[in-house]
Design a binder for these strands. Structure first.
Lengths: 338, 338
DNA sequence: AGGGTTGTTTCAAACGTTTGCAACAAATAG
DNA sequence: CTATTTGTTGCAAACGTTTGAAACAACCCT
């Protein structure tokens, strides 16, 4: 038969006193007789009493839980962010509950609803690729639960956010490819309904413009997964063998491109130089190692959690804060031509 | 000012009826006047009423939440398992709350306590490397919450478990190296307080024994991380240049070894063949691609969740079930000598 | 008219905890 | 010897929801 956690009532019954006395004894309330206090505390310890968080949550209207909604946990970047969030949250006495949207709008809505009705104290969210309607976020706003967006913010919602300098990161990576004598660089871009997709693309384009590089119809390719890059590279190089540089919106895509390029017996970086974005741990496991833009996942998670904790202190008609982490170009062998 | 979710009481007040009537109206109870029902349902919809899960959880002593405790989310294997768990759990109307132990015993204990006092309906756990005491698991047993272990079970606890054929997987991988003419294979082994560490080591050793290969004092190296492997390889090959095969307890370690081997200007697989364990996605991003044993993360997660759901149905003095998934040797270029 | 049925609604308790206030005894003050 | 203080404990309400039982009116049956 299923037992249950020891409750204050159990202790009260065993000592023939009232639950309120037990409650006060446990928190060292001055009104309670020292002997009673000792009895209660000893018994509580012996029986391994732990306060029921659900009851507390209902009573105090706060759960000490932060809801985190991310696209996919299997991406190294997101699991890094989660680690950062968890660190800061735990240190402040909070736990996190993680939900995946799997890049699906419907799943994201479902997750928001589920978390809202679980008395969550705050949200940390990175939007799904496919999300183009925002009622569910508005709903959070109405209920008055603080939200922090990271990496993929929702522009329609008044909320704090943490992002990286996507534009600068992309600009720097592209400049680096240009300095390494790439004449014909293509960009594997992310979806343009996300700011990261737009900003990285613009950083790339502006670097080309600054150096008066021509922009062809094939310069921007919408391709942001490992598999797609593997298929796209052979097709692309067949038509445009002059391509000698690839800058991808994320590391997986860059690695997919690298593998496909090597299969065509082209050398990296001498024939084609490659750079990615994220600095995922795969970037130093490839051969050659991948040049990439460090997206600071762990720090991003920490900042997001910190912003949320701050916002939970003072929520009344606030001015949203945007924290922008600076990126760092990590130069490795996939792009350096001697 | 922070608002709040609409409650049954709010609706009751607005319609000048009692909360119980509202409750019944919402669930289409036959006792309720059709007109009242309609009023309630319309207003509830309009005000976007969602039942408060915390209140339900307290009342019904079930939360529809499954607690998942894993060592580290950033490992691809674990995030794959989580995806499998989430799929099955969500389909059954459950949500999961994920906690990381970071391979720390203390953090694991803390997580168990926190989840226990949150009215969790069940646990899915993979033990931390450093866990050698089990009171916290015993505690779960006492309270009567069902547990399923995966990948790294606790031998002292009566609980269902999902594991892979670690022994067979290791045996097959080792045999494969032998068939590819490796004469001097070392094993980078995991910690021996975990069954996976023991079983994979034994599978390796038994394959050697069967082929009457000598077992030297350096044949087993305790090394199970990327970094450690990178440091260990140069030291090891300096003393034992005759080594021509490495079988690592996981893919990260295998990749660490590969990179270090390549740095020494040795060829893989011709000088040294390498095999790993997990079939993480990094295994096909390396050059050469890594031969490995598929650990079936997603399926493992699904099975674990399914076992837990079953056990939640019938918990009374059960006989624990162990589900063993068969492994599959994925042969890639890092081990095939022509 | 008394009893019973039917339809509809409300009451009250329960889940575990906290906390303002009331209650009570004993001790002290006036 | 009453009045107040002090020390200690218990009551009851609250958080949001469900649910058995009670309540009540309106109706029908004998």
């Amino acid at each position: 038969m299923r037992g249950h956690q020891v409750t204050i009532k159990d202790i009260a019954k065993m000592l023939h006193i009232s639950p309120s006395t037990v409650s006060r004894a446990l928190k060292d309330h001055p009104d309670i007789n020292p002997q009673t206090k000792k009895n209660v505390q000893d018994l509580a310890k012996q029986m391994n009493y732990k306060p029921n968080k659900v009851a507390l949550s209902l009573l105090q209207q706060e759960s000490k839980i932060i809801g985190v909604i991310i696209p996919e946990i299997i991406h190294h970047f997101f699991s890094t962010v989660i680690s950062g969030i968890e660190k800061v949250a735990n240190d402040a006495g909070y736990h996190i509950i993680i939900c995946q949207s799997n890049e699906s709008y419907l799943k994201e809505v479902e997750n928001v609803q589920a978390l809202l009705s679980s008395n969550i104290d705050g949200f940390i969210i990175s939007m799904a690729k496919t999300t183009t309607r925002f009622e569910h976020f508005k709903n959070i706003e109405e209920v008055g639960v603080p939200v922090v967006f990271f990496d993929r913010p929702c522009e329609e919602i008044k909320a704090d956010r943490v992002i990286v300098e996507d534009y600068n990161g992309a600009y720097n990576a592209t400049m680096h490819l240009i300095e390494n004598k790439c004449k014909n660089i293509v960009h594997f871009a992310g979806p343009q309904n996300l700011a990261i997709g737009i900003d990285r693309r613009n950083g790339f384009l502006d670097a080309l413009k600054e150096k008066r590089y021509p922009i062809h119809d094939y310069t921007i390719q919408y391709c942001d997964t490992f598999k797609h890059a593997q298929h796209l590279i052979p097709e692309l190089l067949l038509v445009h063998p002059e391509i000698d540089g690839v800058f991808a919106v994320n590391d997986e895509t860059a690695v997919g491109a690298m593998i496909a390029i090597k299969k065509l017996n082209k050398q990296i970086p001498s024939d084609i130089a490659v750079a990615g974005f994220t600095n995922s741990f795969i970037s130093y496991m490839t051969d050659p190692e991948l040049t990439t833009v460090d997206q600071k996942g762990y720090e991003m998670g920490q900042s997001a959690a910190q912003l949320l904790l701050n916002r939970m202190q003072s929520y009344d008609d606030f001015e949203p804060v945007t924290k922008t982490l600076n990126t760092e170009l990590i130069i490795r062998k996939s792009s350096v031509r001697i």
